[in-house]
């Protein structure tokens, strides 16, 4: 098998970047899947793409702009915005602390 062989610690590194908690057992399982998947992706190295531009948009649109105005049609009330939040406090969202003292 070509491509990259992923280890459990490679997966843990990616898990940290993706902000997802992953157990060691799951990391082993994901590592095997990633290795298998990237071997298929590696097939792309066989294709000659010299001088070929990358496609980012398929219908040819460029710079779709609008006026920088407040659209009152799509503003949520504070109640609507908070309605689905699990943790709120005095009309605010509660978030986890990210900075240490």
């Amino acid at each position: 098998m070509k491509g990259i062989a992923f280890s459990s610690s490679d997966v843990q590194k990616i898990a940290k970047l993706a902000n997802i908690p992953v157990t060691d057992t799951l990391a082993d399982d994901l590592a095997a899947g990633f290795t298998k998947t990237m071997a298929v992706v590696d097939e792309l190295t066989k294709v000659n793409v010299e001088g070929v531009e990358a496609t980012n948009q398929v219908t040819g649109l460029e710079n779709v702009l609008r006026e920088d105005e407040i659209d009152t049609q799509r503003i949520f009330t504070q109640e609507q915005a908070l309605a689905n939040a699990k943790r709120t406090h005095n009309g605010y969202f509660v978030v986890d602390q990210i900075l240490e003292d």
Partner: peptide
Amino acid sequence: ALNRIMLGTFTLSKGYADKYYVRAQQVRTL
């Protein structure tokens, strides 16, 4: 979902984005 989110995090990560993401978009052009 874990599988897909994390593999995508990898293919967009520094050092790999050109190798995988840009190349995939070039083949898309073909």
